[in-house]
């Protein structure tokens, strides 16, 4: 088969009514601008980390929103927080804040204060 430089993702299915959306809802409270996301993927397209590795910020926040939190903590550590995603977002989603909040929800840090 010819290599076109991309692959078709395996179909995934899960039951949204059984998903644990508590953290996802917390995230929407903390970053209200995320409600405006249309999932265009502009953030992932410009991502600095993606230029080096297969980190996909759109996939990360989309999966988070659906309550599928497995492995996201490790994935999020690849982000360098440079903020290009926030600048390109056509809907004005504060992605840096979104990422920091996802990190905090997944691995609560021992903040000094």
């Amino acid at each position: 088969m010819s290599n076109f430089g991309f692959t078709i993702k395996k179909t995934r299915s899960f039951n949204l009514s059984q998903a644990d959306l508590r953290m996802a809802n917390r995230l929407l409270e903390e970053v209200p601008s995320y409600r405006k996301c249309i999932g265009c993927g502009g953030c992932a397209a410009t991502c600095s980390a993606r230029q080096f590795t297969d980190f996909d910020i759109r996939k990360v926040h989309n999966t988070f929103r659906r309550g599928q939190y497995d492995k996201l903590a490790d994935e999020l550590r690849k982000c360098m927080l440079c903020g290009k995603c926030t600048l390109v977002c056509p809907r004005g989603v504060n992605l840096r804040s979104l990422i920091i909040n996802m990190r905090q929800l997944l691995t609560p840090s021992n903040e000094t204060f």
Binding site: R77, M80, E111, T112
Partner: peptide, 21 residues
């Protein structure tokens, strides 16, 4: 910055993917 210190929980080297650079 001190007031924003997130502590040392994320100790792992997160940017291993930059190594071949």
């Amino acid at each position: 910055r001190i007031s924003r210190d997130k502590g040392d929980t994320d100790m792992a080297d997160n940017y291993r993917y930059l190594d071949p650079v």
